[in-house]
Structure formats: structure tokens, C-alpha cells
Design a protein around this nucleic acid. Sequence first.
DNA 1: TAAAAAATTTAGACTAACCTAAAAATATAT
DNA 2: ATATATTTTTAGGTTAGTCTAAATTTTTTA
Lengths: 220, 220
Amino acid sequence: MQNSFTEENYLKIIHSLSGREGVEVSTNALAESTSTRAASVTDMLRKLAEKGLIHYKKYQGVRLTDSGEKVAIKVIRKHRLWEVFLVEKLGFGWDEVHDIAEELEHIPSEILVEKLDTFLGHPRFDPHGDPIPDAKGNLTEPDYTILTDIQVGEKVLMMGVLDHAPSFLQHLDRSGITLGAVIEVKEINEYDKSASVQINGGQTLFISLEVSKNLLVQRR
Amino acid sequence: MQNSFTEENYLKIIHSLSGREGVEVSTNALAESTSTRAASVTDMLRKLAEKGLIHYKKYQGVRLTDSGEKVAIKVIRKHRLWEVFLVEKLGFGWDEVHDIAEELEHIPSEILVEKLDTFLGHPRFDPHGDPIPDAKGNLTEPDYTILTDIQVGEKVLMMGVLDHAPSFLQHLDRSGITLGAVIEVKEINEYDKSASVQINGGQTLFISLEVSKNLLVQRR
DNA sequence: TAAAAAATTTAGACTAACCTAAAAATATAT
DNA sequence: ATATATTTTTAGGTTAGTCTAAATTTTTTA
């Protein structure tokens, strides 16, 4: 039995909100993320539970079943592959692709996804540094560190972002902070935790705590 | 105001059923093509008329308005561009792409279509030989001739198909009849109008009237 | 630990797109 | 030209996904 566009979205959002440990997701959190009302979420949760896609006990929050997890990961795989296509092949900016990929991710056709994956050369990461699950549904989260956890003097590689908002990504573009950039933390301001960082051994710039909190980096 | 997936489909089908002269399309024909019941079609026609997308008088059949025509042509442009993508870039066969393109054609984003068009090198025809409308909505039908109108002794170029059914296309594949092939009509059987044709100056084969009726060719 | 606040669910409605059955309009045939 | 057949529309209903308002459960606070 096929899942609807809307059902797929709920599963994807439950996946992302429940994090790596598969923690319970609240009705209100889902209402917020789906831009609907809590009452609508409750209706949908009952349906998803009946289909065996989520574990759901009234008032207790919700968690994906193995079968729900599978569906969610397939959607995420499609989303991220399409994002690669849009950026690498069509020349979109990383700040422009999210909404279009939200639509493309629901196109149903296993063969399409696999041919797209091959066409793109089996990319491991999407344009925001998020890992792309493989065809079997294996999704291995890289051990990224948030920039706020990096000490003064350390040199790290910029590997991803937590916030995918266009305005944030555009801000990074203007600062010259791209995936793969080398970031050296020169100084941290005790008062507001803003940082002074050097990009690729060149330009030094100040970044606010808000920005640091959303940058995923890797020690080398 | 945005049109729904379903509305776009009705407009596209009205376009194709009303042919080049913009003839009236009947409710029953639409019910057939949309795989719904006539009563459902009537509901949708009332809605499309209210939106100014069709001319509709009860019991009189239906015709696209200029604004409906614009929407239909945009959908057709997207459908055909995606088909080119699926065949040229992803390696699908021309018999495999229709259903997937039916989904992709409804992805909303003007920029996406234009970037896709550029990526594909502004193709003029889709994998079945159908012309692709340009960004301004100009759709010029080439002057194809149906193979049944070709006389014995004439040499023509295979340029398109009327029937897009996978089984028909696969039959052509097995016969070596591809777009661009040179077809020379060697003989026409008076009794059943089947023909004997030579492909690319090589193999000679017999094709039934049913096949001839669905082959679009061009005199040179 | 009882009262207040917050979160969640239930009840009842709405819209889009579909359905069946019956009525009305148009077309065909005698 | 009237009777019959066909086509189309109307009437009333269904499902998915949403809503608001009210009721219920859980959590927090005093």
C-alpha cells in the first residue's frame, strides 16, 4: 500500500524531530513543523498508527516503527539526491533548493531514484553536508562537531549546517564560508561568545554565537 | 492563484483532445481520459469555468480559454522536458518515461523548468518526437505525415509516434524503428493495407496498418 | 497535593475530488 | 415528429486532510 504525500511528510518530520536516539516526538512539535493545528496532527497520528508506521499511545508522543523509519529514510534519500541534482547539474544555489526538493522527494519510482543516484555518481552528502542514505536505507551520521565546541587555536573543516534557512545560507555565502572551507578559530569573545575565525588561511571575520551554533565542522 | 495537480491534468487533457483547431471536447471523452466518471468531470468543469480557464456551456462541451491554454502548454512543456531528461540523462527507454513524467510535470517552479531546459540544451523535441513548447508558450506542430499517407517507393524519415503506449514503443524497438530512421515503403498489401518497408537501407520488414497509423514521418 | 496551566484529544465542520443513482437535455431512429 | 437511446447534469454521499471549539489528560506550580 502506497503512502500519501502528506503521510510521507509526517514520517520525515517525525524522523528528524526524534533525533538519533529515536526519542518521542510531541503532538505540538509536529503541529509546529507541519504548519497545522494539533488537532489535525492527532488525526494523522491515529492513521499512521493504524498503518503500523508509528508507535503511538495517546498523550505519550510518537516514535517511528521500523517500517515507518524505512519510509522516512527513503524520502530523505530522495530529497537529498534531488538537492544534489539541483545544485550540481542545474546550477541552483544551496539556499534555493529546499522547497523544490520538498516536492521532488515525493515522486514515486524506485527506479528513478536509483538512476538518479547513478547519474549523480553516488554522492555521499547533499549540498548542505547532510549524509545521503544508501539504497538499502543505511544512514550513517558523520561525527560532526558544532563550531561552538571548538577551542581557540583549532583548525577545522566546514562540513555542514544545522539551519537550512535561505537567509542563513546566504549569510554564509557572503562571508565566504562554504562546505570544505578551513576554519581556524582565532579568538572567542567571553561576553557574547562571538568568535573571530580565519577562512582558508585568508580573510578573518567575526561570527556570532547564533552562526557558530549552526555550523558543523570536523577536526582533522 | 495556483492550480492543483488535478486541474492541471484536466487542462492538459482538454488541450490534447481539442486538437489543433480548438474543437469542443465532450464530458464523456474527458471522463474516459481522466479515468473518472462523467459526473466528476462535470464538477471539475464548473470549477475550471469559474476560474476562467475554460469556456463551458452546459451540454455544449468545453474549450480552453487563452489563460487555460497557457497553463496547459506550460504543463506540456514540463512533461516533455522531463521526458528528455529521463531518456537522455538517466538512460530510461522511451517506453518507460511517460508515467514518471506525469508526476514531474506538476512540480511547480518556473526557474526549475528554465534551468532544466538550459541543462538539456534547449531540446526542440521529446523522445517521442513531440515538439517542446518554448518558454513563452509557443508550440509549433511540425508537419508530420502519417505513414499510411506515404506511397510505395517514397523514402521518409521516422519523426514521431501517435500512440505512446509502452507496448507499441517496445514493438518499434524490436523492429529497429527509431526516431530518425529512414523508412522506404517497398510495397503495400491491398487486402489489409499492411506494408513492407526497408529500414535505413537495410532490413526489410512487414508492418501492419495498426502500426502505420501510429507512425509520424517526414518527406525529405 | 490540589489548583492552574499547558498539552492533547474529541466532536463536529469544511473543501477538493471523487462516487452512484436519478433526472434532464440532446441526439438518433423509426 | 415522436419514441428511444445516449449524453450530461444534479442530488446526495464518501474520504483525506484540514479547521475551531470544547473536553480531557498531563504537567507544573504554589
